[in-house]
Design a protein around this nucleic acid. Structure first.
Lengths: 340, 340
DNA sequence: GTGTAGTGGACGAACGTTCGCTCTGTCTAG
DNA sequence: CTAGACAGAGCGAACGTTCGTCCACTACAC
């Protein structure tokens, strides 16, 4: 009884024909609307399952003007933080009955406009942006015109977008203060690219902690890198060749911190005895590095979920009167700072 | 001149009205079909950009019966391997002009049926399955009825699905042979859950290598775990308390291997001097663990891209006469086996 | 018997496209 | 001068839904 190949999907009309009512009535039953007698209701329902009816959301969306789908624009799905953020978003979206369409941008940061346009073509109800903007205000200004609800993980310069994130200054502050509290005086730091807001904010927190402890804020203490493991590795060598006297390094994310640990290992420096290390983010790996990494936990999963919640509220309420969310961060002390 | 809030998106009819032709002709121009005079063509095109026209793919899909979208079903987007697989798939799909809709399943493996149904409701053109089936043949048998093209990362027991993957036996073989070649005689192994095909195949490769080297295949050498860092950590303690004499451990994935390294560190065993470690997969981290992890590289990114290529071929050709792909694996020797 | 309320269901219209057919004119070959 | 070819554009229909309006019938109270 196998059907042949091109068997096109059964539509509500097929179900209707099979149960002797109009297709509009069938639609009502399938959606639990209107009033239909129990008898025909049963008949329609059983016809639907017999035929293996699967509603066509595209057609539905066309008339309801809502796709029950949200778009996620991200730069790098492999990044552990972004990955957690996206998982949080996906699960919350699913919980609320929305599908997720992903649109990635190029590693070099371009293609954001293309990605957003593709999502709009598919008429997503809203967009979550997890794309650190390389201050390309113009690009986003343009897309704002489409007046589609957007929630962003990062501040967008001229955007006025709703943002869900964490307090990066506080993150840098907690990490560095932890080190000064432990009595360190010569604390270096490895940052992300200086163009980025996150790097700037975490650096500000670092400096604030140094200030609180009465320590000088020396430019030779700061080494710029690229958020990657290999970048952290190389930055460590540069930093230590310039300042071999450091007793601690604050690294602006855990990924680079892994490279830092690796570099210190190859340099024969014990962690934390010869040099303490503190990271940021608390990626899953952080608890299992050798030695385990002290870090500041940033709730990316929760941020993703919150971004969706906010987005759906925006969609429901017509974008009115909502404020972004700033999620709290928390120090997680482990071995690499000698405080675990 | 800002438009007010509910400004509904401009349709092809709006563009048509604005340039004095029928909307069907407008459609032709916008799609580069039919023959239209250069003059009206220009007029329509400029009207389209003036009004900020964005085509509605939903409506298009409704009539063309093709959404130019594929679905990806995955269990855990945070897993580094799956993550690379998905990125590979996403990028290849994008290159070929297809959108990607993601549908996750519960961490416990349930919800696969729901995910697939959701994708079919959205009328994706095909589905990539990155969901290790816990031998739930029935579930997949059922969805096969919908006769939608599917490519899977894993073999599905009764499925007959097209598969894109790697040779797991070979993976286990290369890793273990590397250790026997280095002269190890007492080699333990930490596996994934024994119910899984991947774990079984890699175990087979491990045993084959032991056989080649004339070593006994002892059940006390095998410890089951869960693919996670923490699982690897604990499995190591169990394994070594039973067999303190081991000089090497083959771990069935790099994630667990990180836990293994961590456990050996806390036990005061130097790697590789006291105990060598070899993993599988070659996740990005592997090059930066302390010490750097010897592993067998599995091309997940390439697998994701290949899965999409295969899927789109299936879609184009009506699923006829295609074979799955088995991608080659490769040993990457680093410090943790003392061969780096 | 009439009027009113309610229930069960049919039906037309719309959503934004694509596709194929038809119609009008102009140009060219015979 | 006529037949055919062809370019340019219009138009109806269809895709699979949802929504609101309208119709027919039953039941009940007066």
């Amino acid at each position: 009884m196998e059907r042949s190949r091109p068997a096109k999907p059964v539509s509500v009309k097929d179900v209707a024909a099979n149960s002797g009512v109009s297709f509009q009535t069938t639609s009502k039953v399938l959606n639990g609307k209107g009033s239909v007698s129990e008898q025909t209701r049963k008949r329609i329902l059983s016809a639907a399952t017999d035929l293996g009816y699967v509603p066509n959301i595209l057609a539905r969306s066309l008339v309801t003007r809502s796709t029950q789908a949200v778009g996620v624009v991200a730069s790098n799905f492999s990044d552990p933080n972004l990955s957690r953020f996206i998982v949080g978003a996906e699960q919350e979206a699913r919980r609320q009955g929305h599908a997720v369409i992903i649109a990635s941008i190029e590693p070099d940061g371009t293609g954001g406009h293309r990605a957003v346009r593709a999502l709009i073509e598919r008429r997503v109800d809203g967009i979550v942006l997890a794309d650190p903007p390389a201050n390309e205000d113009a690009r986003y200004a343009r897309l704002m015109k489409h007046q589609i609800p957007i929630v962003s993980l990062h501040d967008v310069p001229g955007g006025g977008l709703l943002t869900v994130g964490s307090d990066h200054v506080q993150t840098g502050l907690l990490a560095t203060r932890h080190l000064t509290d432990l009595g360190h005086h010569r604390i270096g730091t490895i940052t992300g690219p200086h163009g980025g807001r996150v790097a700037q904010s975490r650096l500000r927190g670092y400096r604030q902690a140094l200030g609180e402890a009465g320590l000088a804020d020396d430019l030779t203490l700061v080494e710029e890198s690229d958020w990657q493991i290999s970048g952290g590795f190389e930055a460590t060598r540069r930093l230590l060749s310039r300042r071999p006297d450091l007793t601690a390094i604050f690294t602006q994310n855990d990924t680079m911190a892994i490279g830092v640990l690796s570099a210190l290992h190859t340099l024969g420096k014990d962690v934390p005895e010869a040099c303490a290390v503190v990271g940021c983010d608390d990626i899953e790996m952080a608890a299992y590095t050798v030695p385990a990494l002290t870090t500041v936990r940033v709730p990316f999963y929760e941020a993703g979920a919150e971004a969706i919640r906010l987005l759906l509220k925006m969609i429901a309420s017509g974008s009115s009167g909502l404020r972004g969310t700033l999620l709290p961060v928390q120090l997680i002390a482990r071995e690499s700072s000698g405080a675990g």
